[in-house]
Amino acid sequence: MRQAFDIYRRLLGVQIRSQLQYRVSFSFDLFSAILVTATEFAALALVFERFEQIGGWTLGEVAFLFGLLEISFGIMDMVFGGFDPQDFGASVRHGSFDQIMLRPAHLLTQVLGSQFALRRLGRIVFGAGVLLFAVTVTQLDWTLAKVLYLPLVVTGMVLFFGGLYIVGSTITFWTVESIEAINILTYGGSYLISYPMHIYQNWLRRIFTYLVPAIFLNYYPVLYFLDKPDPFGFPAFAPFLSPLVGVASFVAALAFWRFGVKHYQSTGS
């Protein structure tokens, strides 16, 4: 375990040094990462002048959802970049994954250490800015419990979407054609939960409650942070399921990953 961590730290060092070699393109990437997120949020913020609410929520309240999601997804994308299904699929096809299997270190450590997209910092920083804005305008009541719970919510989402990345990558051991299906969950899912869940049609919300429990990742915790009533009457612990959902899906993803590696070893893809 200690060795795995040591290797991970060194591999990360390599990634970071490599990226900083290309200063111009790195700054451009960082800047455009901020801009992508900013544009999307700006489009929403600008129409708020006219509409003033979305499903009964103010801009500040939606910004809380949006900022929290952006921070989490940004961290996830940075840490789990090696498992980005598109890139991982390519590394399997080009044989780079074989090279990883030929080294005497944990596969997970090595794949995680094979990519660390620093430019995602742009997204994380912008997300933090939006969250700060949300906290300021909503004037929410901070309690110690809320302060302590906030990082756990972020962790929950990082693990959930990290798990989705791993599942998507594992699928590429079988086929590269269906990556798009998992993209609906990762990109569609993150877009979905950056808005209040009660605005969606019932069938859609139910899918993302019972089939994919994404409603507990962001929406319920934010109800708790903003002291808003639960429109769906779930038990009082519902806001605190986020870390659990994250850990559970991550563990399931790891099990699927192990199964996938075994399959890969028996077919060579």
Binding site: V14, S18, S96, Q99
Partner: peptide, 11 residues
């Protein structure tokens, strides 16, 4: 493997 490298490209 002659066709690919195990080394780190940018290092």
């Amino acid at each position: 493997f002659g066709q690919r490298t195990t080394l780190w490209w940018d290092l």
